[in-house]
Design a protein around this nucleic acid. Structure first.
Lengths: 345, 345
DNA sequence: CCGGCGCTTGCAAACGTTTGTGGCAGAGAG
DNA sequence: CTCTCTGCCACAAACGTTTGCAAGCGCCGG
């Protein structure tokens, strides 16, 4: 039923191979015949059969992406970037949600392997060994995970954390809490690493909690712990957790930012529009997705040098309304009578 | 390099066709040889080449989905449902973001058409004619768009709106605003239709504004208009807009729900966790995605009767903290000279 | 005038799988 | 014992495309 290359060939009075060449390696056919072929193809609405093409070329024109949790807007951001960049190069994208399960991640990549030219694995939970074994079965690019000999797009979480620390120190904070995300998340390890280094330099003492689920509920849970410790600032692993913290603090009548500063990571839409607007580190989500596809494609089309190429993306602290000067550290002389909910700014 | 069916055949001492049958129509081969083949396939780690298979069968084992805006968590919800249900039946899913552009939607579906067995188009912006022409090129299923002869999963927006109206009427509201989403969105038309019918019955007068962009900013913009009209309740097209309304009302010092009730649609995560938690109509996002794939697959695998099958999903009002009894109606004794936007009868 | 070269094109093989057809063997019936 | 039928399997064609190879042809230089 669908129109094949032979239909076009017949209409253009040439052989199928000429049609094929006219459509791909156009410099191999004479100008006039090429025009004839193109016209015929257009009139018939010819669309090459990707299965047949891929069978012989060994390439599919598809890439895959697997993310840990589609409910987190961070990943939908990189998804947008991935899809836009892929489309720009004529690639279609397979998508799958690993649901934060290493085994599922691996299974999904393996299932995709036969029909894609490569897959970008986003902030994977899988182990190094699992990832390496996956790299053997298809071309791999990582996002926010560093592994020797596997290309990756990396967001500078440590640098973002340094900015956070400088910001808090400048506001006179001396003791803050860090709410850990998942331990096996590279981003969390980077943030912690950056935090420790910068905090030591800035003479900021840090107490860590967690790990917690990197979600709203995790933040709610963590808030009470941090509050009990008497810190003046809370740095959450990501915005979702920070929003949970904000919500819990409001419930407990702790005024933000007067009594407690809060900062998150990611710069989700909701960080900008919640009350009060959240101070956070902007992660380049779409740019990260595009960069990952860049690397993947250059590893596929290109000379294949890219085995060890990593791309770093910068991050920026965005100061909004949840950070302020540390309260003159007299926790005791503040009676704090009010139990109301945090007011809108 | 990858292992083919012939490698398996050689190892199992049978022909390639026997391997093929052993793996698919297993009842056509003797038990002992089948076991031998299966063992050989397993030892070699054989994975059939989907391109070759699809070339001969004409089926791909893939489906596609195109959504209007990946930044809206509503669509990521249905994406999850789609992917889960597809995976359950062994289908992989292509994904694309139409970016609310009818032309892009159509182009994306056409691009997918050759490599999928069907595509679910999510709340499409494309015209009826465009959709029909797409249905000719591949198997189509719609989500939240009703069109004769094209299967669809539909969420009962009108029913949800009826619940909203009953709720507001019971709280003593007499005049409310509806903030329209995009005019060409079926969901918006349904919500408006349900609203008009229910409002007439409940003696609730309604003033409409918009259409607005179905996003946070649209809600911010709309809030001022509704406020100027003196309504006691605002029904937003979706939660994103409702959150924008909430934010703007807070900025303007209007207490919610004491001075103004607000209700949204969708029941996003953020509706539950914002302050105050939003009263909203829960849309079955994942279930909708699953239902759409159900329909699509039954149209593909099944007898193909499904041409006209529509599946309705129920919706439920979730009462939280943004709705309360109407303020003692000062509306009547308040002259309020300002000119509102177009209202209806 | 002839040999060779470059440009253009057709022929045919190949990619890995599914599936229709036919053959062989064994069993059951006459 | 022979005929037929059935179960099991191999052979080969086909799906639509790309690509190596060779052939036709005109042109140029010798």
């Amino acid at each position: 039923m669908p129109v094949t290359i032979h239909d076009v060939a017949q209409r253009a009075q040439v052989s199928a191979s000429t049609v094929s060449r006219a459509l791909s390696a156009s410099h191999l056919v004479r100008g006039t015949t090429r025009d004839r072929v193109l016209a015929a193809a257009k009139e018939l609405g010819y669309q090459p059969n990707p299965a047949a093409r891929s069978l012989i070329t060994g390439r599919t024109g598809n890439i895959g992406i697997v993310v840990p949790d589609l409910n987190n807007p961070f990943y939908t951001g990189v998804l947008r970037g991935v899809q836009a960049r892929a489309r720009q190069s004529g690639y279609a994208v397979f998508f799958a949600d690993g649901e934060e399960d290493p085994a599922a991640e691996e299974a999904l990549v393996r299932a995709m392997a036969r029909q894609v030219d490569g897959v970008v694995v986003c902030a994977p939970f899988a182990s190094d060994a699992q990832l390496r074994s996956l790299a053997a079965v298809t071309s791999l690019t990582l996002l926010n995970r560093r592994l020797r000999d596997i290309p990756a797009a990396l967001m500078d979480s440590a640098g973002g954390m340094r900015q956070v620390v400088d910001h808090l120190a400048a506001l006179g904070h001396h003791r803050c809490a860090y709410l850990n995300g998942p331990n096996n998340a590279w981003s969390n390890r980077e943030r912690r690493r950056g935090l420790r280094a910068a905090a030591a330099r800035a003479q900021l003492s840090v107490v860590e909690f967690g790990p917690f689920e990197p979600k709203f509920e995790g933040g709610v849970q963590a808030a009470d712990l941090a509050l009990a410790d008497g810190v003046t600032a809370i740095i959450a692993y990501n915005d979702l957790m920070a929003l949970g913290v904000l919500s819990r603090l409001a419930d407990r009548g702790v005024a933000v930012p007067q009594e407690m500063s809060v900062v998150g990571f990611d710069n989700l839409l909701y960080a900008a529009v919640c009350a009060p607007p959240l101070t956070t580190v902007a992660m380049p989500m779409e740019a990260g997705g595009r960069a990952a596809v860049d690397l993947l494609l250059s590893g596929i089309d290109g000379a294949g040098d890219g085995a060890g190429s990593h791309r770093e993306l910068t991050t920026n602290l965005i100061v909004r309304a949840t950070t302020a000067a540390a309260r003159s550290h007299s926790v005791s002389d503040d009676p704090r009578p009010m139990a109301g909910r945090g007011s809108h700014g």
